[in-house]
Design a protein around this nucleic acid. Structure first.
Lengths: 154, 154
DNA sequence: CATTCCAGTTCTATTTTAGGACCGGATTTC
DNA sequence: GAAATCCGGTCCTAAAATAGAACTGGAATG
């Protein structure tokens, strides 16, 4: 049966997963952050079927995460580039990466790390903070209804 | 055909998506953070088919994200509880939530926010930082091979 | 002890996926 | 400048995942 949709869900997590939460989309976005731009390069790097890749890329473009731009090498082909919206997914990728690093490797297994390019040091683990900077734990938070767009500041 | 697996991928992002990157797992985890514990409650809250939920919960338990514990109300039933590993996914959920809040709502649409329970203020946006605390952008980072478990510090 | 609740399992129709064959235009090779 | 090859797809098929409903068997409830 047709996969359930959360495009109109109230919860932002559900909406996000609806947009980019399938098997391939975030891997394509990760590759885009790694500098991959061309159809063939995505296909080869991911080992994805061309048909899948084709529809995934189309969906990502429709979602405004990627856009098609003229190839940077001057050829008549096109390239896929991250939009501003797509670049906003970097923190999602980092969060997934850090959880994987911490939980999914055996002690002696080779792995990669994300480093600060300037100093070559691993980046700091992401952390939750209150608006005033206090470190927070998940037990210190709660979901609340937000104010709706106060058009004139009362 | 059988869905491609990334359990043994080098990239931590791919491994994470392999473990919890399907259509339902993260929504189940999100519900768990919201205090949902029972099979029926997940099923009703998500509107998921029982068969799907059953296999998803089994997979999450196998992955060590959830565990079965005796029901807190003293009945003979069991409950699903987040493990330490599962609680580590909170930042992933927060990252997805913030991206969704920023990119997937129309101006006038009602939405929810994650607030600091103590002060009732929205939490700070997640941010990337170097180990020394400097704010970083994605262009300031790069993926590198990590040292493999230096058993004796050379 | 009859009824309803709970947590699943089983079954089926439909959709999605992986993978390969195919195809037309662009580019490189000779 | 013709042939061979590359690139970026589309189309097709078999197997697998999904949604949804029906069924089951033990627990709680009256």
């Amino acid at each position: 049966m047709k996969r359930k949709s959360f495009r109109e869900a109230e919860c932002p997590v559900a909406r996000t997963l609806d947009a980019i939460g399938d098997w391939w989309s975030l891997l394509i976005v990760r590759d885009a952050f790694d500098g991959i731009k061309r159809f063939g390069a995505f296909q080869q790097n991911l080992g994805i079927a061309k048909g899948m890749l084709s529809t995934r890329l189309r969906d990502l473009v429709d979602a405004g995460v990627l856009e098609l731009v003229p190839a940077s090498d001057g050829s008549a082909y096109q390239e896929y580039a991250l939009t501003e919206k797509g670049r906003g997914l970097f923190l999602v990728i980092v969060a997934l990466r850090q959880w994987g690093e911490d939980n999914l490797y055996r002690e002696d297994e080779p792995r990669s790390v994300l480093v600060d390019a300037e100093k070559g040091q691993p980046i700091a683990p992401l952390g939750l903070r209150a608006s005033d900077g206090r470190r927070l734990d998940w037990t210190d938070t709660r979901v609340e209804a937000a104010e709706i767009n106060p058009r004139k500041s009362s």
